[in-house]
């Protein structure tokens, strides 16, 4: 039973990593949002499983937040935004998908190499969870680096935050304050980004970051 529990946790965390890879691969904005929804659902399942396993009911709250906020509200509003901005077009990918995937695999390997020895003394559940979480964080960063469009960068950032939550949930008995604060900060972060997107749309034709850079006009 013990083994099965841990295995399920690992499967869920692994699925999250896999979804991260899918995010990395997906090159259409609407598809990206769909996969992000999946990401959030898997996260909430994973957190819920942790809640069950650790017998920590407060984690159910976190899982619920993940479902409601990240799997419903955010994808919904993102869809609204891209519709309003008429950017259903293909996402440009810097560097090519193949290279990006290779780098992603390297990052996955790196996180295992870094984390497994470091967590030798930790309980086995946390061990792999934290390695997977690191991989998700790194993949999220990679996505932010390789994407040009602000919406896909935001999705990259949010997948990164999901990794953080996975790590926080996996850390045995980490006080509630952290989860709430993470959820809370994402909320704030998102509102702010929303404001920004709104403003940016007001000022510029689209939210392509390169457009933003164009206004620099040789300032230094």
């Amino acid at each position: 039973m013990e083994h099965l529990t841990i295995d399920i946790a690992h499967v869920l965390a692994g699925a999250l990593v896999l979804t991260s890879f899918m995010l990395l691969y997906q090159d259409r904005l609407s598809g990206l949002i769909n996969i992000y929804t999946l990401h959030a659902v898997v996260l909430s399942l994973s957190v819920a499983w942790q809640a069950y396993y650790q017998d920590a009911p407060h984690l159910y709250v976190t899982a619920a937040i993940a479902v409601i906020f990240k799997a419903v509200i955010i994808p919904f509003s993102l869809r609204r935004i891209i519709e309003r901005l008429r950017i259903h077009r293909t996402v440009e990918v810097v560097g090519g998908v193949g290279v990006t995937m290779l780098i992603g695999i390297f990052l996955m390997a790196l996180s295992l190499v870094v984390m497994l020895p470091a967590t030798a003394s930790a309980d086995p559940l946390a061990r792999e969870d934290i390695a997977f979480a690191l991989a998700i964080v790194l993949l999220g960063l990679l996505m932010m680096v390789t994407r040009r469009n602000a919406v896909s960068q935001i999705i990259g950032f949010m997948s990164l935050e999901n990794g953080l939550i996975l790590a926080a949930a996996g850390a045995n008995g980490m006080p509630l304050v952290v989860e709430i604060s993470v959820a809370f900060s994402i909320l704030i972060a998102f509102i702010v980004i929303g404001i920004f997107l709104f403003r940016i749309r007001e000022r510029f034709d689209n939210v392509d970051l390169f457009e933003l850079d164009r206004v620099r006009g040789g300032r230094s």
């Binding site: 960063l141 933003l212 230094s220």
Partner: peptide, 12 residues
């Protein structure tokens, strides 16, 4: 004069 993305790449 880099873009935000390139700065992120530096951090990364």
């Amino acid at each position: 004069l880099l873009t935000i993305q390139e700065y992120l790449a530096l951090v990364f």
